[in-house]
Amino acid sequence: MIVITEPTISRLLAEARGGLDRLTPADAYAAQQDGALLVDIRREDQRERFGAPPGSFPIDLTILEWRLDPTSPWRSTLAAPGIRPVVFCQEGFSSSLAAARLQALGLVGATDVEGGFAAWAEAGLPVAETLPERIF
């Protein structure tokens, strides 16, 4: 029998999700109400086209760790010790990989939203009238 040990995106995604306590959109909304930080890693054009949850924290995926690591000199003021980042993208794939990276950084409560923002909107959860300003 041949065992494939090479990384594939499917394997990486499964491994990332294996370490996450993924949230439904309703659970993510409840977590936000309890103080979790909703982290929007979508591209600007996606945010403009589809909207965003009120109070979400839009941040470019390329600087995610630097802005959320409480020990980073480039951290956001929102990156206080003990924060619980709940990451979402449009469909719930990139966010799983990003949340796993945040866990590897030491943010043990990091997770993502099953189905991403598309599932959030489909569930009828709030969408901001104006987009939160992106953090650079």
Rank of each mutant, 00 (worst) to 15 (best):
A14Y: 01
Q103S: 01
E114W: 02
R75P: 06
L102Y: 03
G19C: 00
P54W: 04
S56F: 04
P85C: 12
A110E: 07
A123T: 14
T8G: 12
T111A: 02
L68N: 10
E15C: 02
L78R: 14
R22A: 07
G51V: 09
D21A: 13
T24I: 11
F88R: 04
A80T: 15
Q46F: 11
R84N: 09
A31E: 03
F93T: 12
A28N: 06
A36H: 06
R17A: 03
S72L: 07
R67P: 03
Y29R: 11
Q46E: 15
S56G: 06
L38T: 08
W74K: 14
A119S: 03
F50I: 05
P81Y: 04
W120R: 10
M1L: 10
Q90S: 10
V108A: 06
A52Q: 10
A128S: 14
D40A: 06
R67K: 15
E122D: 10
E65L: 07
A36I: 13
A30P: 06
I63W: 02
R11Q: 00
A123I: 12
I59N: 08
F57Q: 13
V87W: 01
R84S: 09
D112P: 11
P58R: 12
T77L: 08
E129T: 15
Q33S: 13
A118C: 01
A104C: 00
L12C: 12
E91P: 00
R17T: 05
Q32P: 04
V39W: 06
E65T: 02
P58C: 08
S96H: 13
L102C: 01
I59M: 14
T24K: 05
P85I: 09
E44T: 15
Y29T: 00
E15Y: 06
G124S: 02
G19S: 08
D40N: 04
T71A: 10
P85K: 12
L20I: 14
R43Y: 09
A28G: 03
G51H: 10
I2W: 07
D27A: 15
I41V: 10
G106D: 01
S95H: 03
A80P: 00
A28H: 10
A99I: 13
P132K: 12
I4W: 08
G51N: 12
W74R: 15
P53V: 09
F57R: 14
A110D: 08
F136K: 13
G18K: 06
A121W: 01
Q46R: 14
G82F: 07
A100H: 15
E15H: 12
G109C: 07
T62Q: 10
A128H: 05
R84H: 14
T62W: 06
L38R: 10
I4L: 10
R43K: 07
E133N: 12
L97R: 14
